[in-house]
């Protein structure tokens, strides 16, 4: 019975897309074991810790299966699971140093196989978001964050939400394209506080 419902949901989800590509996919998605065999042939010689990074967790398995367009029941499961993974600062403070946050937002280093292993990773926020207005080299994969704090009247709940979003984007939005910076240990708690300050400090150029 449950299987029938799931199938119905899949058909509905596929039908609602206008592109035929995603509709076809739901119908003939290859066996996961087959995909794993391909993965092994291409990445099987990588160091074990690198291979572990491309092993999808429960959340990513769902995102992959639905090409990120998850039905609401699955989305609820994901946000609940990911919210439980967020570790909030013990001191209850979400705002760090916006000047450090500005540097982190502009730093795209870290995590690439060409990076020295001890590279301190940045958030690379500008790759996808507009932030302070004088920076013209910004991407458009994510929404503009210009005046982010000012537009939210520096509301404490919004500050906490921003910390949550940077720590684990999928705690706020299932299958968000944004990295889960805290959960995946790309950024430290202090770095995340600095980015939140870059968004919310009234002195930050994001709000000027």
């Amino acid at each position: 019975m449950k299987r029938v419902l799931t199938l119905a949901a899949l058909v509905l989800a596929a039908g609602s897309h206008t592109t035929s590509a995603s509709a076809q996919t739901a119908a003939k998605a290859p066996d996961p074991a087959l995909v794993d065999a391909y993965m092994k042939s291409t990445f099987g010689k990588a160091p074990p810790e690198w291979q572990a990074r491309i092993e999808p967790d429960e959340t990513l398995k769902t995102c992959n299966a639905y090409h990120n367009e998850v039905p609401s029941a699955e989305a609820d499961k994901i946000t609940a699971r990911e919210l439980a993974r967020v570790v909030y600062p013990a001191d209850g403070k979400f705002l760090g140093n916006w000047k450090e946050g500005a540097k982190i937002a502009n730093n795209g280093r870290g995590g690439q196989f060409s990076d020295p292993p001890d590279t301190v990773a940045g958030g690379n926020c500008y790759a996808c978001h507009q932030m302070e207005q004088k920076e013209v080299s910004y991407g458009t994969l994510g929404p503009s964050l210009t005046n982010y704090g000012k537009d939210r009247k520096y509301d404490p709940q919004e500050i906490k939400n921003a910390f949550t979003k940077v720590y684990d984007s999928q705690a706020m939005f299932a299958c968000s394209n944004m990295p889960r910076f805290g959960v995946n240990k790309v950024l430290s708690e202090q770095q995340i506080k600095d980015i939140v300050a870059f968004l919310f400090d009234p002195e930050s150029p994001v709000n000027k």
């Binding site: 290859p30 087959l34 995909v35 391909y38 990513l60 995590g111 990773a121 394209n177 790309v186």
Partner: peptide, 22 residues
Amino acid sequence: VAVGEALFYRRGGVNDFSCATC
């Protein structure tokens, strides 16, 4: 082609990126 499409959407790495992310 079918495996290629699945891989296009397969997320992973420390930033959860797939081809489809961009």
